[in-house]
Simulated scan of single mutants.
Amino acid sequence: MKKPRLSFWQVWNMSFGFLGIQMGFALQNANVSRIFQTLGAEIDDIPILWVAAPLTGLIVQPIIGYFSDRTWHPKLGRRRPYFLFGAILASLALFIMPNSPFLWFAAGMLWIMDASINVSMEPFRAFVGDNLPDEQRTTGFAMQSFFIGIGAYVASKLPLMLTYLGVANTAPEGVIPDSVKFSFYIGGIVFFLAVLWTVLKSREYSPEEMARFEDAERDEFKKENKADEWYISNGQAQQKAGFAVLLLSLVLTYLIYHFDLKKDLYVLTIGLLGLGSSALIISGAIQKKGRSDNGFVTIMNDFQSMPKVMKQLAWVQFFSWFALFSMWIYMTPAVTEHLYNATDTTSEAYNNGANQVG
């Protein structure tokens, strides 16, 4: 049994939610440094405040992917409960973020906003694979890219457009300008409505239907069943690797402390290496106990057994995101200070420059 082809408008409807999701991401990427600076952050503090974005994606996406694969709601299906739940939280966060009274509050809202957007976004990728036959998947991803492009462009330009329409682009010290506030409000509304459109206008195949599709493809994609002995051996290997990475983390952390290096580096040694080593050690311990069906183990082993092409692509993504986050973090202070000669966040010059960042 093969999945039926969907019409143009069916593919449109199932991808439309990405318009709102990308508007949320674009507003975050173009304006968060501006909000942090307005609330008093020094330029050297901005990177550590931004750490929420990559960490939440790293943590939330695998978890949501795992659970959405195993979810079924009689009315909302497999992926759409996550679309809707994430959209509600993300829309609320978009309304609250530009009204942050303190810097620490804005940093906390970034964690919530980014996590919520990821809850909605992650299952959208799998939505294409669930609903479309192989020959239409390129069309599905192209349609998603179309909405990503529109959403990113419009959301990035919203403060500039609202300023042109007469909305105030300056505010007293410690207050976010109305041009930014109303941009986030518009983004929150579009985010929710666009995702709601996909939730209401799309359908999903039931577990029984998906099982029949998978049976038809089983000869092409055979699932590898591993023996208990493999999991025990793999658990031991993961624990050894985990302890080695943990030792490296401790040594590098001490060197940062001893030589009084930038404290931001603790994010790499404690956050990345420390958490990564802990994940390997915990996964290994669970497998050694024979609990191979554990969700955490499944996620860790999926990382381990990725195809070679995906591992190569992961390195490309790793270095690409270095450049992207450097741009998002530093673009606002770079443009406002070096092109508009402004560091006063209440000045017209600073806020005009910040509008150009989008």
Results as ranks from 00 to 15, higher is better:
residue 76 L to T: 07
residue 240 K to T: 11
residue 146 F to N: 08
residue 130 D to C: 01
residue 153 Y to R: 11
residue 55 L to C: 15
residue 178 D to A: 09
residue 309 V to P: 01
residue 23 M to G: 00
residue 307 P to F: 05
residue 81 P to E: 12
residue 5 R to A: 01
residue 32 V to Y: 15
residue 217 E to C: 06
residue 12 W to Q: 10
residue 8 F to Y: 15
residue 296 F to Y: 07
residue 307 P to Y: 06
residue 122 E to F: 02
residue 236 Q to L: 03
residue 54 P to V: 08
residue 43 I to P: 14
residue 355 N to D: 09
residue 179 S to P: 00
residue 350 Y to H: 02
residue 305 S to C: 10
residue 269 T to C: 03
residue 83 F to C: 01
residue 162 L to G: 02
residue 224 E to I: 09
residue 330 Y to D: 01
residue 296 F to Q: 13
residue 18 F to L: 03
residue 261 L to F: 15
residue 129 G to I: 01
residue 55 L to I: 09
residue 161 M to E: 08
residue 78 R to H: 13
residue 269 T to A: 01
residue 26 A to L: 01
residue 25 F to V: 05
residue 162 L to Y: 14
residue 290 G to S: 00
residue 166 G to Y: 11
residue 7 S to C: 13
residue 267 V to R: 13
residue 11 V to C: 00
residue 334 A to I: 09
residue 329 I to R: 10
residue 328 W to L: 04
residue 12 W to N: 11
residue 127 F to L: 12
residue 236 Q to A: 06
residue 24 G to C: 00
residue 317 Q to F: 09
residue 172 P to M: 02
residue 312 Q to T: 15
residue 355 N to F: 09
residue 278 S to T: 13
residue 350 Y to R: 09
residue 187 G to M: 01
residue 37 Q to P: 02
residue 294 N to D: 09
residue 302 D to R: 15
residue 26 A to R: 02
residue 213 F to V: 04
residue 240 K to A: 03
residue 14 M to A: 13
residue 199 V to Y: 13
residue 188 G to Q: 08
residue 295 G to W: 03
residue 88 I to E: 04
residue 123 P to Q: 14
residue 1 M to F: 10
residue 60 V to Y: 04
residue 143 M to G: 05
residue 281 I to G: 09
residue 96 I to A: 08
residue 231 Y to H: 14
residue 5 R to G: 00
residue 280 L to K: 11
residue 273 L to G: 03
residue 42 E to I: 03
residue 86 G to R: 13
residue 112 I to A: 13
residue 294 N to P: 02
residue 254 Y to I: 09
residue 247 L to I: 12
residue 144 Q to H: 11
residue 230 W to P: 06
residue 226 K to P: 11
residue 278 S to I: 15
residue 126 A to S: 06
residue 6 L to H: 08
residue 304 Q to E: 06
residue 298 T to A: 12
residue 127 F to N: 15
residue 107 A to R: 14
residue 139 T to N: 06
residue 85 F to S: 14
residue 197 W to N: 10
residue 260 D to Q: 15
residue 45 D to Q: 05
residue 152 A to P: 00
residue 283 S to T: 08
residue 76 L to C: 05
residue 275 L to T: 05
residue 144 Q to G: 02
residue 91 S to F: 00
residue 134 D to F: 02
residue 253 T to E: 04
residue 171 A to W: 08
residue 95 F to D: 07
residue 234 N to L: 05
residue 246 L to Q: 02
residue 50 W to T: 00
residue 201 K to N: 10
residue 191 F to L: 14
residue 222 K to M: 15
residue 165 L to W: 13
residue 213 F to Y: 14
residue 261 L to A: 15
residue 311 K to E: 07
residue 172 P to S: 11
residue 40 G to N: 12
residue 141 F to E: 14
residue 109 M to D: 03
residue 178 D to I: 09
residue 176 I to L: 01
residue 236 Q to I: 13
residue 69 D to K: 13
residue 230 W to H: 12
residue 2 K to T: 06
residue 87 A to Q: 02
residue 6 L to D: 02
residue 195 V to Q: 00
residue 27 L to E: 00
residue 245 V to C: 12
residue 309 V to R: 13
residue 55 L to Y: 08
residue 118 N to C: 05
residue 85 F to W: 06
residue 351 N to Y: 07
residue 162 L to H: 03
residue 191 F to R: 10
residue 139 T to Q: 04
residue 265 L to M: 11
residue 193 L to A: 05
residue 324 L to Q: 15
residue 58 L to K: 08
residue 225 N to R: 05
residue 221 F to G: 04
